[in-house]
Design a protein around this nucleic acid. Structure first.
Lengths: 138, 138
DNA sequence: CTTTTTTTTTGTAATGATTACAACTTTGTA
DNA sequence: TACAAAGTTGTAATCATTACAAAAAAAAAG
């Protein structure tokens, strides 16, 4: 309940009314930094919330992203992934194992931003083979 | 034919055997810098290549991307987009009109690259509202 | 507190991009 | 010419996501 109140006010900060489902999704994203898909979140929460529906997970993620509480990661062409960490950082997708790693980013030079358009979010994404898969020489 | 030979040897440089279909897709991407989807490419080429199949467009794009002759852009969650310009630059997706703009990038500081992983491609992506849509105040 | 209204959730049925697959065609080569 | 390999095609899945309308829950009103 400690956690629940915490997450509840976090959502409120973003102008999101905190329902049980929204808190559960948000909490899952803050606790699991694996950049999960909607399906993974659904599968993880379903056991403890038997009435939860996939549609609610999709709706909730859309809402969280629209209000800036969660980042929408589009590097993986198979499905959207989501990140509860909205601080500035990049992502590396291993094309062999599918793992999505964080890449630290101090700051993104202003010169890299588009001049004419109004930016609401940034993504710095890399693709390739991760250290783990390189060793296994997959 | 001038153009065809040119594109043929461009593909050969990347170790891709130049078929009529592959040349057509590659040429389309070099002539149209709109970051089209597979479907858009298919629709554009189909009239002049009545036997062309969607599957071939998908297969061809996968091949071109695998060999590094074309960039695979994953900023648009609705579908994959492709870019015949493989020089370093970023992209801005307008969430109102769906237009994908190029964003010039001088160079990406080495400090922004992941330390441990073997990178094969980079994407710098922005989302928001484009100048055009801001004026129309959509 | 009830009643009414608004918001949220849910399940099912589409949609639509992408892939699997097997047959057919073209190209390269002996 | 004839065989083998590579490429193309059409159709049928697959699978992530969205549309939609009914049910449930929460908030507002009386």
């Amino acid at each position: 309940m400690e956690r629940r109140n915490h997450t509840g006010s976090y959502l409120a900060q973003y102008g999101i009314r905190p329902s049980v489902q929204r808190i559960a999704v948000m909490e899952y994203l803050q606790a699991h930094r694996t950049h999960p898909s909607a399906e993974e979140i659904y599968q993880a929460l379903a056991p403890s919330m038997p009435t939860l529906s996939r549609t609610t997970v999709y709706n909730t993620l859309e809402l969280l992203v629209a209000h800036g509480a969660v980042a929408h990661i589009t590097i993986d062409p198979r499905f959207s992934r989501y990140d509860g960490d909205i601080s500035l950082h990049g992502h590396f997708l291993c094309e062999h194992c599918g793992t999505l790693y964080d890449v630290p980013v101090e700051a993104l030079p202003q010169t890299l931003y588009p001049k004419d358009h109004q930016v609401s979010s940034v993504q710095l994404s890399y693709r390739g083979t991760c250290a783990h898969c390189t060793q296994k020489h997959n």
